[in-house]
Computed example of a mutant assay.
Amino acid sequence: MRLYIKQKVWSFKDRFTIKDDVERDVYYVEGEMLTFAKKLRLFDQQNEEQLYIEQKLWRFFPEYDLYQDGQQVATVKKDFELFKNNYTILGPDWHIEGSVMAHDYVIKEGNKVIADINKKWLSWGDAYEIIIHDEKSVSVLLGVVIVIDAVISQARNGQSAT
Rank of each mutant, 00 (worst) to 15 (best):
I18E: 07
K19S: 15
K19F: 09
D21F: 10
R24Y: 13
R24S: 12
D25F: 06
Y27S: 04
Y27H: 11
Y28S: 09
Y28D: 04
V29N: 10
V29Y: 09
E30K: 12
L34S: 00
L34A: 01
T35H: 07
T35L: 08
T35Y: 06
A37S: 00
A37E: 10
K38C: 10
R41S: 14
E48T: 08
E49T: 05
Q50D: 03
L51P: 13
I53F: 09
E54C: 11
W58D: 07
R59P: 11
F60M: 15
F60C: 12
L66Q: 03
L66Y: 05
L66E: 04
Y67C: 07
Y67Q: 09
Q68D: 11
D69S: 08
G70R: 06
Q71S: 10
Q72A: 06
V73D: 12
V73C: 13
V73G: 09
A74M: 03
A74S: 11
F83E: 00
K84R: 15
N85H: 12
N86T: 09
N86G: 07
T88L: 04
T88F: 03
I89Y: 08
L90D: 06
W94H: 05
I96L: 15
I96N: 04
I96E: 07
E97L: 02
E97K: 01
G98I: 00
G98P: 02
M101R: 09
A102M: 11
A102E: 14
A102C: 08
H103S: 13
H103L: 07
D104Y: 06
Y105S: 01
E109Q: 14
N111F: 09
V113R: 07
A115H: 00
D116R: 10
D116I: 02
N118C: 12
N118L: 10
K119M: 13
K119I: 06
W124G: 09
G125K: 03
G125E: 06
A127M: 07
E129V: 07
I130K: 01
I130Y: 03
I131S: 15
I132G: 07
I132T: 02
I132A: 04
H133A: 12
D134W: 08
K136H: 13
S137Y: 14
V138W: 07
S139F: 10
S139R: 02
V140I: 13
L141M: 10
L142Q: 03
G143L: 09
V145R: 05
I146F: 05
V147Y: 00
D149F: 08
D149H: 05
D149Q: 08
A150K: 13
A150Q: 15
A150E: 15
A150Y: 07
A150I: 08
A150N: 15
V151R: 02
V151L: 04
I152P: 01
I152C: 03
S153F: 13
Q154E: 14
Q154L: 11
A155E: 15
R156P: 02
A161C: 09
